[in-house]
């Protein structure tokens, strides 16, 4: 069991793990309200990756990972994840307001 501190590494490694063995890989989210902690776990019964947080900001990142895993599991491991994340990024970008002409 490995606790990964960096979010990007956790996402990268967990997707690699799933693609290596899609049939036996599972993704678990455990939330304890009394501790105010959220633990994410991706395992294939041989290797186990975990990520722990208590920040509300991380819940948004977790939402993206959820979306990725739902896509991988419901559409198959060969799905292009750039479509999944790309859509979200497009939606998240606010419309830029012009500040007038630069002097």
């Amino acid at each position: 069991m490995v606790y990964i501190t960096e979010w990007d590494k956790f996402v990268e490694q967990s997707i690699e793990l799933f693609r290596a063995d899609p049939d036996s890989t599972r993704y678990v989210m455990k939330y304890r309200h009394c501790d105010g902690k959220l633990v994410l776990k991706v395992t294939d019964n041989r290797q186990c990756l975990k990520y722990k947080t208590d920040q509300a900001q991380e819940a948004k990142k977790m939402e993206k990972l959820n979306n990725m895993f739902f896509a991988l599991m419901a559409r198959g491991p060969d799905v292009d994840l750039s479509e999944v994340t790309g859509k979200e990024q497009m939606d998240a970008q606010p419309t830029k307001k012009g500040r007038g002409r630069k002097q």
Binding site: P22, D23, T25, M29, K30, Y31, H33, N66, F69, M73
Partner: peptide, 11 residues
């Protein structure tokens, strides 16, 4: 306050 929830996603 006492709650714990675990959600598992598998293929």
């Amino acid at each position: 306050v006492q709650s714990m929830i675990a959600v598992t996603v598998t293929s």
